[in-house]
Design a protein around this nucleic acid. Structure first.
Lengths: 116, 116
DNA sequence: ACCTATTTGTCCGTATGTATG
DNA sequence: CCATACATACGGACAAATAGG
């Protein structure tokens, strides 16, 4: 379990931490039941604020990707499994969109439009 | 050409304006060559600031969806056509993800991860 | 081809709220 | 909880493109 961040990036730190975990779930490197390192560990290892890591974990919880329990830490939830299942489909769509000159950012915007 | 916004929404106004146009392009109601109403018209009709509308238009320009030229206004660009082409694929993916309990918001995040 | 009034987006700054660490 | 940084929305002045005479 390795979380990477780029201090130079303009992306919020907490977003980078959450993204790192999300990518690991997508790739199947993290499966339901796996425990994430404690927020304090991560904060110390990356030399960032504890609150920042906690915010990332809370975002993942809001997405139903992890369960957060006091005293036990963050555990990848069962509802995270479907992510890996559709990963290949997402990749394929991104590829086809790219072939038409549509960036992932634009595609993400389109996906968001659908709900409205 | 009708642009709607929701003043109550927490979504930024300029984002709502851009989204409204994007949806119309997606649905084929706007095609390359069509001209958007001038930013001033839209601003007055919706009772929001001119610059808020312009910011939405500039975002669409950054996405290569419209061409912005002063004196001439905003015109739907030729590169907007592919959007309508992949719209059905996007909708289908959103549907399949939904069946697995994955929200459009989460799916959009996944799409964004791919590029990194 | 010329002028100029109008239309239209761009650039300057400012206030206020929200996010970040 | 707090200081700072960032994003959002607004306002006024400006400059390019256009249209009409």
């Amino acid at each position: 379990m390795l979380i990477r961040i780029d201090a130079e990036s303009s992306r919020p730190l907490f977003e980078q931490v959450a993204s790192s975990v999300r990518v690991d779930i997508l790739a199947g490197r993290l499966v339901p039941g796996d425990r994430l390192p404690s927020a304090r560990e991560v904060a110390e290892a990356l030399d960032i604020n504890l609150h920042t890591v906690l915010r990332a974990y809370q975002q993942l919880r809001d997405e139903k990707l992890v369960d957060l329990r006091r005293g036990r830490g963050a555990v990848v939830s069962a509802s995270a499994a479907p992510l890996a299942e559709i990963a290949s489909e997402v990749t394929e769509l991104v590829r086809r969109a790219g072939a038409r000159g549509i960036s992932p950012a634009t595609l993400a915007a389109l996906v968001s439009e659908i709900e409205s």
